[in-house]
Structures are given as C-alpha cells and as structure tokens.
Design a protein around this nucleic acid. Structure first.
Lengths: 143, 143
DNA sequence: CGGGATCCCCTAGGATACTG
DNA sequence: CAGTATCCTAGGGGATCCCG
C-alpha cells in the first residue's frame, strides 16, 4: 500500500522545496568530482594512509597508469590529496588525503554503508522487475 | 610493508585493509546507480513528492525526454521509485520515491551538504593550483 | 501526454609505447 | 619508478521524429 506518502508528501504551495535549481549545481559539482570511474576507489585506498604511485597502481584493481595519473592530478588540484615528490635517484612520490579529503571519505562511508545494506533489496527488485507498473485501478485493464 | 600508517594499519597479514577488493564492488555499484548525469537530480526532485513525467521534464533543467525516461526506468527497476500509470484519455503517469529511494536521499543530502560546505575551499584550491607540488619541506621532513 | 525508436556525436577511459 | 603522449573504441547522452 503506497497511497499516502511515507514522509508527508504535501508540497502544493510551491514548485520547489529544497534541492532544485540552486542545489542541482552542487549535485553536478559532486558528480564531476567523484562521479567518475576511479576517484572514489583511489580515495578509499588512500584512507589507509600514505601511498606511493605504484602502490596505488596495483592496489586499485584494473586502473591504468593514465587514469591513475589523471585522477590523482584532479584530486590534488581540488585539494583532496597531497602529492609529495622526493628528488631521489629512484623517484618516489607519495600521495595522502588532506583533511578535506578525509571529510569526504566520511560521506563516502555512509554511501558504501547504504549500498551494502540495501543491495540485496535492489538486486531483488531488478530480478523480478518488468512486472507490474503499479496499477492503481485493478478493474481497469491496460495491456 | 610501508613505513608508519597514519591510522594504524592493523592489516599486515593481507594486501587489503577495509575498502579494497570487497568494498570496491560496492563503490562500483553505487556509481553505476547514481553516478550518471541525471539520476541524482531526478531523485532530488522527487523528494518533493509525487511528480508527473512532464512535470519532471521541465523541473530538471536540461534533461531530454530520452534521458528522463531511461533514468526513471532504471530507478523503477531498482525499486527506488514507483511508477503509477492511470489509463485516462490524456495519459497520466506519476512517479514517487519508495522508502528505499528516500533512504538514499538522506545520504545524498549529506553529500550535497558536504559540497556546499567545502566548494569554496575546493574552488580556491583549483584556482591557484598548478603551483607547488608540496615539496617535502627541505627544512623539515613530512610528519 | 508519455514515451519508443533512430541517428549521431563527443568524451571518458583502455592499451601501448616512450622518457626523465 | 613515476609519469607523459598518442591512438582508438564503447557507450553516455543530445536531437529529432513518431506513435498509442
């Protein structure tokens, strides 16, 4: 039974409530930052502490040098990660999260949490989906 | 293997600690679900309550019919949104968040919060980026 | 009104090779 | 070791037309 909204869906007075227009910019921003294929994985790996390039390269499963470099560069540029290069004979470069990066990690944690909690539920839905389109009128047939 | 971990790497016996391998799957899953261009925007719009197709179409700025349809279909299939079609003369279809969708909205809220809090900070970093590569401070080594 | 079907373009991102 | 440069493809996603 859906009928009534779970959390009082009564918003007839205005076209917007909290997220639209103004906030869509933020959503865009977030997606451009962490919505790509590797950023979150790299950040998640860096949560364990300082990591070297080659270290990350084979810790993050399946990432190419190119993508690792690009991802790291963007993260550094955004101030989420620090890059420390040591001018040694065998070059050594270390990457680490900044406080800002760590603060993001917290949110990501929630996201992972959510996914691990509900992913059975979602998979189940996907499974026997393509079923009812939630017909409101059982008496009225529509193919 | 590495020197000293920042946050007590209590995982010396294995190559992975907490996020890698096992969790990367979840990250992947999340990104495939909400990492695309429109999903979060649609969900955010639906937080205001039941919405019709055409309603969404011009509430979400810049979305095409195609993308709206595809996004909604995926959301319905994943059980995040319900689709209710009324067999009327002028067709009417309403979309609404399921409890599952609402639970996700909560997390997204945190994400938006994070973005709105730190986006100045990030923009500032991006601005005068391309600067120092965080040299290991010749006078003092990194902590 | 609420989509489905098509065409087409653009860019994220993989593979490979080279350099300091 | 830690990248950079280049080439190339899959598919995300816009525009357009059509249909029930």
């Amino acid at each position: 039974m859906d009928t009534a909204g779970v959390t009082a869906n009564t918003m007839p007075t205005g076209p917007c409530a909290r997220i639209p227009a103004g906030q869509s910019a933020f959503i865009r921003e977030i997606l451009e930052r962490v919505g790509d294929k590797w950023t979150l994985l790299v950040i998640a790996t860096l949560q364990q502490g300082v990591r070297r390039y080659s270290d990350l390269h084979h810790t993050v499963p399946g990432i190419s040098q190119r993508m690792l470099t690009l991802t790291l560069r963007q993260l550094v540029q955004d101030g989420l990660v620090t890059r420390t290069a040591y001018a040694e004979v065998p070059p050594r470069v270390e990457y680490a999260l900044t406080p800002l990066g760590i603060s993001l990690l917290d949110i990501v944690g929630s996201l992972i949490d959510w996914a691990s909690t509900h992913h059975d539920e979602i998979r189940e839905h996907r499974a026997h989906a393509a079923r009812a389109t939630t017909k409101p009128t059982p008496a009225n047939a529509k193919s």
